[in-house]
Write a protein that binds this DNA or RNA. Structure first.
Lengths: 338, 338
DNA sequence: TTGTATGCGTTATCAA
DNA sequence: TTGATAACGCATACAA
């Protein structure tokens, strides 16, 4: 059996109350007693039972983070930084995986309630249909919800996300400013806000420049799909903006295989500016997403909401920055295309 | 306040005992009553409090997984598959991050005890010095520990890991068999078992072939370090075996930059066969590490140990397979080196 | 300064 | 078939 405060109390001829107080450094108990209690606790190898403690206290000291895909470096990074931030804020982080499935996301939310999380950080699944029901449920149970990386429009919960609109604007404008005449966008299917935002922004910039949009969609946003698309494309544009670095790397590989040089014959850019951008054969122009900042702001928002801050006060938009690298560094590349 | 079984009991004029039994589908309670209880529970939006349940039951239904670096795709993958396997086995998975720090690993182990985990899956930090003390502590508390991905020699706990020795043997033998005369190994510093095993295996095969080993070490096992090493290397071998795919990709990029063609002028291979191997410009020869199999076996071992299986019965070695791709497909490449 | 008693939400052992 | 009641381990108001 595990060592409990009862064991310490018995061994020291004290009451459990005193032991409990002593272990929590209460000023009510004599210093000498506190010392003895702690010594005995250490001697017996006592560890507090967190469940009992949570139950008695009425609060768990935990916040939850749910992410759709831990194998995606973007979310893995988020988990990493949120863990650090939660730790620094004095909260234990519980990590939940929703595996890009709406039904699992729902199940996870239930589990989060059952496990007395004090707040929930949700990076929602990348699906067109989101379920607003559990949001209402969480609100009803007074468990603060904070969206991270992607917002959920039309739902009464704050969110922390990158300024994707601005990021895409910077990128597209860069493509146009450096001479792009056929600036294409390789993206996924519509319906997911984080995708749609970028598409809109792209369209706007092109419209202002008097250029026609050229959008290519893949069903799943993967490196392979981008690779296959570029390999099979008959009529390539002079600039190819990709939804993220992963797809850009796929595109680069395909271009390499076709013997088309970057940036001389075609320019390519990614998005996210993760280390993916550095994995590429040609250093990749990309747009930063400051995941560490998103993580920190999310945790701050969660903690603020735990302390009663109004949801409206907890929204944060993290700026994006353009990182220009070799893959687009060619001013007059439209001329020498094959 | 949250809805409890007391609320259901009061609302239905039943005792909490009956409600609890009904909710757990006990055959003791009348079917009609069970139906009514469940209906009322649903109506009130009842969710069981897992802490109270764990406390009363004396078991939490949870197993823990601790990994050193969630941003490493290898561990992210492990987390993904272990989560699925634990789920299938009826256990909730709690994920802990040790951030490649021994002191955090120790803290995590403490937290695992405090949170009543029924078993622990540990992917240990990749450091030369491991702490065997908490292993003894866990044993003392009867919390089964299972090492995953890396074993901890000299410790009374079972482990599940790839057969790295065999994998490296296959790879090195392949390099020799296809004409390699100067087969080099780009690796990290000694002291970590998973690294040492491969180095030994590499040395053995070369010795048998009458070739001299040629080992290059980087301090940290990163893509960048491999890239920098290859970029600066004056005297390149005809074959470069890398500790993992990540380093191989770094090497490939550097070779590309130097205008050295793979596999014509130099052959390159990785290890792990993750999607890293596919990110590469040149499809990479690699050795599989079946992470899904490791995950499944680890969870099985944990569950078996929870049910009293002896530690000795829970060791598993997952076979490795050689995947030959373009990066080494050149039989007589030693001749045409620059 | 310490001890007694009670409650947190659930399960489990008895009786009824 | 159901109902009291005592745990589980800890925290806390109140009494001593």
């Amino acid at each position: 059996m595990r060592v409990t405060i009862r064991d310490i109390a018995a061994s020291l001829h004290l009451s459990t109350a005193t032991v409990s107080l002593a272990l929590n450094d209460s000023p009510l108990v004599k210093l000498e007693t506190t010392r003895r209690v702690k010594a005995e606790a250490a001697r017996l190898g006592y560890t507090p039972n967190q469940y009992a403690r949570s139950l008695a206290r009425g609060r768990s000291g935990r916040i939850a983070l749910a992410v759709p895909d831990i194998q995606n470096v973007y979310y893995a990074s988020l988990v990493h930084y949120v863990n650090l931030a939660a730790d620094a804020a004095g909260y234990q982080l519980s990590i939940f995986l929703t595996n890009e499935s709406l039904s699992r996301e729902r199940a996870v939310m239930r589990s989060i309630v059952q496990n007395n999380m004090e707040a929930v950080l949700l990076a929602p699944v990348n699906r067109p249909d989101l379920d607003a029901e559990y949001v209402a449920e969480l609100n009803g149970l007074d468990i603060p919800l904070v969206f991270a990386t992607a917002r959920h429009p039309g739902v009464n919960a704050p969110g922390v996300a990158s300024n994707l609109q601005e990021g895409m604007r910077l990128l597209t404008a860069h493509a146009v400013a450096t001479g792009g005449k056929r600036v294409a966008f390789l993206t996924g299917s519509r319906g997911v806000e984080t995708i749609d935002i970028r598409e809109e922004s792209y369209r706007e910039v092109l419209a202002q420049a008097g250029l026609a949009p050229e959008i290519h969609r893949v069903s799943e946003i993967t490196l392979e799909n981008a690779y296959r698309f570029v390999l099979g494309a008959k009529d390539l544009p002079d600039t190819l903006l990709c939804l993220n670095d992963m797809m850009a790397v796929g595109a680069l590989n395909a271009l390499m295989e076709r013997g088309i040089s970057v940036p001389e014959q075609i320019r390519v850019a990614g998005f996210d500016d993760g280390w993916y951008a550095r994995v590429a054969v040609t250093p990749l122009t990309s747009v930063t997403q400051d995941i560490e900042a998103i993580a920190n702001a999310s945790v701050s928002a969660a903690v603020a909401r735990i302390h009663g801050q109004a949801p409206e006060q907890c929204n944060t938009i993290i700026p994006c920055e353009l990182r220009i690298r070799k893959s687009t560094q060619c001013v007059r590349c439209t001329q020498n295309r094959p």
